[in-house]
Design a protein around this nucleic acid. Structure first.
Length: 427
DNA sequence: TCTGGGGTCCTAGGACCC
DNA sequence: TCTGGGGTCCTAGGACCC
């Protein structure tokens, strides 16, 4: 039987999460800001209608904010993560297989479901159930490939007459939609590619679908060839039964204010290394390589710039925060130069393996090979358990004390759903 | 004054081997 | 005087995604 995908995507996800707990702002334009309250990363439909662009630095739209009374929100990932989880749990109850693609999207396998209910009716059922259970609006696109399902969702969002659900399983309908969708809206076609394609006279999705596959492969890559095949209804991205494990884990942040001193940077890097290692343990992985980077603010073109990274291979793959923090600080010291205003730092873990990929230590005495590891794992498990109950109770001494790097979050909403003290009150 | 964070995949080219 | 060819592995960089 031919596979059918449903693509479910939350509308203005972060903005909708904020509005859910602020019914007083129902018709008010709001935007959600990136870390450090830097850029706009989400907009309510009212803010979109005012022409506020995605990604714009907030200081560039100050006059609009004042003029239209746009409400600002700092990113509240604790809230969005919890709301996302609720949406996904709801979807998992509706379909036999769900691929969570990002914080606000998922693909559902709905092959054969049309024996019981029409695809469009199923889409409406998904939409209504999520709204009923979680309170967030979603759109649903249905098609024989993921790329077409994303495009169906684009249409569901763009055209009000669809009421948020588009069934694109019919090939004639596929071609009619492709003809009116600009090529840059296709999943997998970004800014650079769309410029090149337009130069070749390919401006809409249908023209891309009708381009010779060998030409696409030669002029671009197999990736774009695959996209064209998917637009023609041939599924190239199948279901992963075992989602592949992570290949790298990163923790990086811009600082709330520029940092100059090594001790201030050390505190930040120790903290990021700790966070990255927590994620590593969360996925039961071990890191074989560590990369540290620091950089100044590239947007401040009138001041001295510096950007450097350093990496080190870990002799034995590890998930021990003590070792990773120590190594990260060593790398930081090797690249630090005084006299710069640093704006950002980060720690990346790579060469990740699971337990079966661990090498035994050649230099441990026979019979005690795993003793050190067992001790380390017990210690880390205790740390994680305490920090799970009460966030950031235990940390490396290097990361402790007053921190100069904390980010700006001047418009942060409460953790409505994850902190008892912040529960919304109904009067 | 103020410009996010975290990922994946593919390709080209160099090093190295026989 | 003539100066190969094919294969693998690794890395850096670029493109994309949300």
């Amino acid at each position: 039987m031919k596979t059918v995908f449903a693509h479910v995507d939350c509308n203005n996800f972060y903005a909708s999460c904020e509005k859910l707990f602020r019914p007083d702002l129902r018709n008010t334009p709001i935007v959600v800001l990136s870390n450090n309250d830097g850029c706009v990363v989400a907009r309510s439909k009212e803010a979109k209608a005012l022409g506020i662009k995605m990604g714009v630095p907030v200081h560039q739209i100050k006059s609009e904010i004042r003029q239209y009374g746009i409400q600002l929100f700092s990113s509240n990932y604790t809230l969005y993560g919890d709301m996302s989880h609720r949406v996904m749990v709801t979807l998992e109850a509706l379909a036999p297989r769900v691929d969570v693609y990002s914080i606000d999207e998922a693909f559902l396998d709905i092959t054969g479901i049309d024996k019981a209910v029409s695809f469009a009716d199923f889409g409406r059922q998904v939409k209504d159930t999520v709204y009923q259970n979680v309170g967030l609006p979603v759109c649903v696109g249905i098609a024989p490939t993921r790329t077409l399902a994303k495009l169906a969702n684009y249409a569901a969002k763009k055209f009000a007459a669809t009421k948020g659900v588009v069934d694109l399983t019919d090939p004639a309908r596929q071609r009619r939609l492709l003809a009116i969708v600009p090529v840059e809206e296709v999943w997998g076609v970004g800014r650079k590619l769309s410029v090149k394609l337009q130069a070749m006279g390919i401006t809409n999705a249908l023209q891309l679908a009708d381009t010779d596959l060998a030409t696409l492969r030669k002029r671009f890559s197999v990736v774009l060839e695959r996209t064209a095949r998917e637009l023609n209804g041939t599924a190239c991205i199948a279901w992963d039964d075992a989602p592949s494990p992570k290949k790298q884990i990163m923790c990086s942040r811009s600082f709330g204010q520029p940092l100059q001193s090594l001790p201030d940077l050390e505190k930040a890097v120790a903290h990021y290394a700790t966070r990255a290692t927590e994620k590593l343990r969360g996925g039961q992985q071990f890191a074989g390589e560590l990369i540290v980077f620091i950089r100044t603010n590239p947007f401040r073109t009138n001041v001295a710039q510096y950007s450097k990274s350093a990496s080190v291979k870990l002799v034995n793959s590890t998930q021990d925060s003590r070792l990773i923090v120590q190594q990260a600080l060593g790398q930081l010291r090797s690249i630090y130069r005084s006299g710069y205003d640093y704006a950002k730092a980060g720690v990346m873990l790579s060469e990740l393996v699971d337990e079966t990929g661990l090498q035994e230590d050649l230099f441990e005495p026979l019979g005690t090979e795993n003793l050190g590891r067992a001790k380390s794992e017990r210690l880390m498990a205790v740390m994680d358990e305490i920090n799970r109950k009460s966030r950031a109770t235990l940390c490396m001494a290097r990361a402790a004390g007053p921190t100069a790097y904390v980010m700006r979050r001047e418009h942060l909403s409460p953790a409505y759903t994850t902190d008892r003290a912040a529960l919304p009150k109904v009067r």
